[in-house]
Amino acid sequence: MMRFIFAFLTSIATAGPALAFAADSGMFSDLEYVADTEITAPNGAPLALCHETRDLRLLGLTVSSNIEGYALAMDRCAGDAERSFSQQQMETAQSLNLIDASLPSQPRNGLQRTIQNYGIWVAISLALFAVIIRRVKSLMGLDPASPMRKKATQRIITAMCYMGKCDGIVASSEIFLITKVASRLTRQSVPSTEVVRIADHIDMDLTPQDYLDFGKGLRDSEKDTMMRGAFFVGLASGRIIPAEYDFLRNLAHGIGMPGEDFRRVMNEALEDLDIYQSSL
């Protein structure tokens, strides 16, 4: 991934001389002070030894910096380079005691710069990888912390309202119950007015195709939540009446839920009910 990111960014950055996708983003040449020298400019001003660097910046942040050679410049490398300084020139100047002889004649990235260069790419790669993984998990419904899709939330609320109306009417207490439980199960903000709207438009004369439509396009985890919500509404009254059981059975058949999952989801709904009642 790091190679992909680098290729992508540098291809954009090198599209212009120093102006790629923002005024302070792209590839830039820079100077870094290394040491004073005994060499002077034609006007007699002292020259300093500098590293010539090639930097990749994104919105002003230096992503990587590589030393490309030596140069001489005035004002401790604060201005432009007077001239580049080759390895041969460096060795000659050192032999004449014009430059500190302990400095390497051929400049290269040190350990700290190398770690910084690779470290930021590793950080960017890990951050992008985390974003991609979270996005994939969200799309596949594997992220338990992310809100459910609106389509799934709507179907879950509808199934819970049907369950509530199996006894003839969705009472105000059931409206409150469905609103609170649906919000918790779907991690979406569910207004009670939406529950009332859905409950008011329910037709209990359901066909086999209607039950199939409940699960159409939903993930398995969303179907589980739908059944949990429907079970919860029925169990909240203390018992499941025959009409409610028929709805649950037909709903499970319509969404393709096998018997073992049916029982598992019922047990989860019972646990939900214990949590709900203890919070009151």
Rank of each mutant, 00 (worst) to 15 (best):
A159G: 11
F176D: 12
K216T: 07
D167T: 12
T114S: 14
T179A: 05
I120L: 15
T186Q: 02
D203V: 11
L128V: 15
G119A: 08
T186W: 03
S189P: 02
P144E: 07
Y118K: 08
L98I: 06
S192L: 01
F129S: 14
Q116G: 05
C161K: 00
L126I: 15
G164S: 00
L139A: 12
I120E: 03
N109G: 11
V195N: 00
T207N: 06
G164T: 03
G217I: 05
R134I: 11
S125G: 13
G217Q: 05
K150Y: 04
G110F: 12
L139H: 08
L177N: 03
F176G: 05
P144K: 04
A130W: 11
V181I: 15
L98N: 04
L126W: 10
I156D: 02
F129E: 08
Y162K: 03
P191Q: 10
S183M: 06
I132D: 06
Q106I: 15
I115F: 13
V122A: 15
V181E: 04
A182F: 02
L142E: 08
P104N: 11
R108V: 07
K151F: 07
D213Q: 13
S173K: 11
S192D: 12
D213P: 01
G164F: 01
R184Q: 15
H201M: 10
P147Y: 09
I169G: 03
S125L: 06
T193A: 14
G164Y: 00
P107L: 10
I156V: 10
Q188G: 03
G217S: 10
W121F: 14
G141A: 05
M140K: 09
R184H: 10
I133A: 14
I178D: 00
Q209R: 15
A145H: 12
A127F: 15
